[in-house]
């Protein structure tokens, strides 16, 4: 991977992630997240994982964020409601502690991971992330986990239908 495009892309990804958090307008924030997803998809492309890149766009940007956007638009959440304005001290404190912990973790683990990097990278097969390999992993090696996940999603979906129907009646 060439360094310059990587840095430029990282700047875009981080900038839009920050914009997502700092934006007053919830819909604009959601759109910033879409740009962030796109940037992450390009990261996958640079790593040669075309399939994962396209799935990233189709699933996260194309399906999940559209539904998020629906909810945001219909509720019309704006900043002035007060709930979003308050910043209690305890929250800031907890956020600061957690943030420092995370940074420390990255600081400790990153050098370790860098040491492992060479050996790990060599073990990756040529067709890593190809649709064929992803499909075989999902449907042969982890079939049970896949089916359980599908079942949980189905249950959640039916639960939503039941709750919505009760309110109608």
């Amino acid at each position: 991977m060439t360094l310059l495009p990587f840095i430029a892309l990282s700047v875009v990804a981080i900038a839009f992630a920050l914009l997502l958090v700092l934006n007053r307008n919830a819909v604009h924030g959601a759109l910033c997240l879409v740009v962030n997803f796109a940037a992450v998809a390009v990261f996958f492309l640079m790593l040669g994982a075309e399939f994962i890149a396209v799935v990233q766009v189709a699933v996260y940007a194309g399906a999940i964020m559209v539904l998020f956007l629906f909810v945001l638009m219909l509720l019309n959440i704006q900043g002035q409601e007060g709930g979003l304005e308050q910043k209690p001290r305890s929250q800031i404190l907890i956020a600061a502690v957690l943030g420092i912990l995370l940074l420390a973790e990255i600081g400790v683990l990153a050098p370790l991971a860098a040491g492992l990097g060479g050996a790990q990278a060599a073990a990756v097969p040529a067709d890593f992330g190809s649709p064929r390999l992803v499909g075989l992993t999902l449907f042969r090696d982890h079939l049970l986990a896949f089916e359980i996940a599908a079942f949980i999603l189905l249950a959640a979906m039916m639960g939503a239908v039941v709750l919505a129907k009760r309110r109608l009646a």
């Binding site: 075309e50 399939f51 396209v54 799935v55 766009v57 189709a58 194309g62 190809s130 649709p131």
Partner: peptide, 14 residues
């Protein structure tokens, strides 16, 4: 690209 069809589906969802 070897995932052309998926690419079109992704764009149409965008």
């Amino acid at each position: 690209v070897n995932i052309g069809i998926l690419y079109i589906l992704a764009l149409s969802s965008l």
